[in-house]
């Protein structure tokens, strides 16, 4: 007989591979079957269920399906509620579960609760004795992004630098840190360093995941934004087009990264004098954000009023 826990682990590994190959929706299906296997074998509160829920939460978050991402994260948090610090497996699962929910809360603009969740995850992780620099760095970047979008730039930068020290600058996993550093520098108008960080993130992603992965495309869009701000409009346009066409191929049509790329590309087209294209791109970004974030999200509210004015003129 097959050991169900081992079988579930195998399927989650397969799901991760599908995701890395850009087959995100198949990854979700496989991860769901992994969850079914452990639910059937281990009863409702087996730690392996938390593991499957965490994987599903991450996948849904990457697909901009935040309601499902939240549901799975909360379930994992409930299962890991009663942990002992000596039970390394359970503590690690809890750290991940808290991180998943923190990420969803951040996207939903609930920065207060996101910060609390990230902090408790980091506290737990730092008290642990196992080496896991990548997970720590991801949490630090997540909390840093909460600070960034609360205008707490100094705190954000300190966390990003700490994360970079943990993972080193040349690893595939440090791409996420370079991405965040590039975003910070773009917002603080430090374009030279911002550009070099964005290029690093892009080349690390390209080497690890290939040119057609959603994460690679996202770094292309980031570099495009930096170049546009510096006046290199033609190169920026090329990068935006390539990023958006990759997103259209490998992501579901309503995805946050696609919306951001469309909005930013819209600004570029406007600056180039193509106002019709700018309006279409801005509208598309708004439609996507409304679907995935709801009408009351600040990013949507701001845009709704702008577009209402634009179209009623």
């Amino acid at each position: 007989m097959v050991d169900p826990i081992a079988e579930a682990r195998r399927r989650l590994g397969l799901a991760r591979r599908f995701y890395d190959e850009g087959r995100a929706e198949e990854a979700v299906v496989v991860a769901e079957t992994a969850l079914a296997v452990v639910e059937h074998a281990g009863g409702p509160n087996h730690p392996a269920i938390a593991g499957a829920c965490i994987e599903l939460s991450l996948l849904h978050e990457r697909l901009s399906q935040y309601t499902k991402a939240e549901r799975y994260a909360r379930r994992a948090i409930v299962i890991t509620e009663e942990y002992s610090r000596r039970d390394e497996t359970l503590v690690r699962l809890r750290v991940k579960a808290l991180g998943c929910l923190a990420m969803v809360e951040r996207v939903r603009n609930r920065f207060g609760s996101s910060e609390v969740l990230y902090r408790s995850a980091l506290d737990l992780a730092e008290n642990g004795t196992w080496p896991h620099p990548e997970e720590l760095a991801e949490l630090m970047c997540g909390l840093g992004a909460v600070y960034l979008f609360s205008s707490r730039f100094v705190e954000a930068e300190a966390l990003y630098r700490q994360a970079l020290e943990l993972v080193g600058s040349e690893k595939a996993t440090s791409a996420v840190v370079w991405h965040h550093l590039a975003e910070l520098d773009l917002m603080l108008s430090r374009f030279d360093t911002g550009e070099s960080y964005a290029r690093r993130a892009l080349s690390l992603r390209e080497n690890a995941l290939g040119p057609n992965h959603a994460s690679t495309a996202n770094e292309r869009a980031m570099l495009a934004a930096v170049l546009a701000r510096q006046g290199n409009l033609d190169m920026a346009e090329k990068l935006f087009r390539k990023a958006i066409s990759t997103f259209e191929r490998v992501l579901p049509p309503n995805h946050y990264d696609l919306a951001v790329a469309c909005a930013d590309f819209g600004m570029l087209m406007a600056a180039k004098g193509n106002i019709a294209a700018a309006g279409r791109l801005t509208q598309r970004a708004l439609d996507i954000k409304t679907k995935i974030l709801g009408r009351n999200h600040p990013e949507v509210r701001q845009a709704v009023e702008d577009l209402a004015r634009l179209t009623t003129r």
């Binding site: 960034l148 979008f149 609360s150 205008s151 773009l186 917002m187 108008s189 934004a225 546009a228 701000r229 510096q230 006046g231 409009l233 920026a236 909005a263 930013d264 600004m267 570029l268 600056a271 180039k272 600040p298 990013e299 701001q302």
Partner: peptide, 13 residues
């Protein structure tokens, strides 16, 4: 921060 991001993606030229 949102306004700052708007400014950050404003193309130059």
């Amino acid at each position: 921060a949102l306004t700052r991001r708007n400014l950050a993606i404003l193309p130059t030229g």
